[in-house]
Amino acid sequence: MQKLKDFAHGALVPVLLLLLWEAGSRLGLFSEVLLPSPTAVAIKWWAYLLPGQPQEAGQSYLAWLFSGELPHDAYSSLFRVITGFLIGAGLALPFGLLMGASPRIYDLFNPLMQILRPIPPIAYIPLAILWFGLGNPPSFFLIAIGAFFPVLMNTIAGVRQVDGIFLRAARNLGASQWTMFTRVILPAATPYILAGVRIGIGTAFIVVIVSEMIAVNDGLGFRILEAREFMWSDKIIAGMITIGLLGLAIDTGVSRLNNHLLRWHRGLEH
């Protein structure tokens, strides 16, 4: 009951806004080309979601159901985010662990990192195209860069804040360097690392949309840019809403994963 109440409370403002928007459209306050009505967007979204062709012989029902443009675009974008993120975070994690644990490695690499970090991933676009041409690779590259720094910085910070008492306790139990690293330092740093992962995925998601506007011909970012060329503003908005929903789904998933991995942690906020 309380949940229902909370939900109604949270839905109040969006619903009101939608109603105003719809009313405005019906009264002809907004140009149909520039700002189509919510119903028009919803209809377009539905068409975008549904399969384009009738089910073919031999095609499974599920495959057909997801053969529409939107599922295909969402899948392409998601695939890029995940691949790019895995590359970026996969490099950042061991590197961050090393930099966090060894002051010498830190001093060696930190100046370079501090110079590279403020460069927005978007600024790498020309280089990305030059180096990787068209298709997925430049996207992977840009997304990996977007995910790399948040994960790196948080991993370094996470390792550096590990309470010395844990290290002393582990040394007392006879832990080797390796055990210390994998069973003490890494888990002690996970709250920080996971916070970095969350930020990194958020960045990856921003970068994927941008990168799709340059070098590929599918994905949600590509689709809304394409729709602009035809002045399909209903499709642009439908695409944007899809981006929002997908982002929300990813963030919810990551946050669930965090809560599971950090179930031992005291300062759990969610």
């Binding site: 008492i165 306790a169 582990a170 003490v184 888990p187 031992w264 942690h265």
Partner: peptide, 10 residues
């Protein structure tokens, strides 16, 4: 140790 020093993730 006085501050227990248990590993909180275990």
């Amino acid at each position: 140790f006085q501050e227990y020093a248990l590993f909180p993730w275990m």
